[in-house]
Structure formats: structure tokens, C-alpha cells
Simulated assay, not measured.
Amino acid sequence: MSGHRIFRTPFSSVYPMYVQKAERKGRTRAEVDEAIRWLTGYTQEALQQQIARQVDIETFFAEAPGLNPASERVTGVVCGVRVEEVEDPLMRRIRILDKLVDELAKGKAMQKVLRQA
């Protein structure tokens, strides 16, 4: 296990930041949740349970029902880091989620964010 401190950060503390970023740009919490569910395989109820349990990010991704295979098509730069070049699998998942939220905030259509088009 890598010791990066973001891995130990509670997902419940990062989640509101994702929502705020999206809402500042006219997107909704429901859209953020849809992107998270698409990536992780959680149901809405299970996602809310993970947030309520205040699991750390490492546990959040470890307990995810399944990473969407289409997430491999998420590429580009987020926070100055090229997503497809991140070697650590957990850090890559975190960066993919960051990228999905960034794309929402930039106004991309949900279909494109979720790699359906």
C-alpha cells in the first residue's frame, strides 16, 4: 500500500468539493453522483452509505462494486497531471474522478463525460 495522504482522506470530505465545483458552473449534485456511480459501480444508496460511513478514499475505491471498463478512455490533464500516465492504480482512479468532475464543470454533455459518445 502506498502512503500517499490523499488515500487516507475521508471521501466524505472530498465529495462536497466535487459538488461545489460542479454547482458553481451550473451543474447538479445528481450529475456528480451519476459520474461517481458510472465510475465505481455504486448504487445511489450505496454511495450515500459510503459517504455516511466516512470511509477513506482508499476504502471507497476498494469497496466499489467495479470500475467501469470505459474509464480507461478517460484521458487528459487534471491538476497538471496527465491522467493516462499515472502509474499507481488508486491514484489513477482518483485522477479519473477528478477529470470527470472537471469535464462536468466545463459544461461537457453528460453523454460525453460518461464516454457514451
Rank of each mutant, 00 (worst) to 15 (best):
E85R: 09
F61E: 05
V101D: 03
Q116L: 15
E31H: 03
E23I: 01
V14S: 11
W38F: 14
A105V: 14
Y42R: 06
G26I: 08
A52C: 07
T28M: 09
Q111K: 10
R5E: 11
P10L: 03
A109V: 14
R82H: 10
D33C: 14
A30H: 15
D88S: 08
A22C: 06
V74L: 01
Q48E: 14
T40G: 05
V81F: 01
V113K: 02
V101F: 04
R53V: 10
P65V: 05
Q49A: 15
S13C: 08
R92M: 01
Q111G: 02
G76D: 10
R37W: 08
Q20M: 13
R24G: 10
R73D: 09
R27L: 04
A105D: 02
K112I: 14
Q20F: 10
D33Q: 15
P69G: 14
Q20C: 07
V83L: 00
G41H: 04
L90T: 04
D56S: 00
A105N: 08
R53H: 13
I96M: 00
S71H: 11
K21V: 08
R73C: 09
E58Q: 11
G80L: 12
L39A: 09
T43L: 12
R29Q: 15
T59I: 03
R93M: 09
I94L: 06
R92L: 05
Q50Y: 10
Q20L: 13
Q49R: 15
P10E: 14
V77W: 06
F61T: 06
V86G: 04
Q20R: 10
R82A: 11
M1A: 14
V19Y: 11
E72C: 13
L100R: 03
A46H: 12
M110R: 02
E23P: 01
V32Q: 01
S12Q: 10
V86I: 15
V74G: 02
R95D: 04
L67P: 00
F60Y: 04
D98G: 08
Q49V: 12
A52D: 15
Y15H: 12
Q48D: 13
E58L: 08
K108H: 12
P16V: 07
K112Y: 13
R5H: 15
L114F: 05
L97S: 11
E45W: 07
A117M: 10
D88T: 07
R27I: 00
F7E: 04
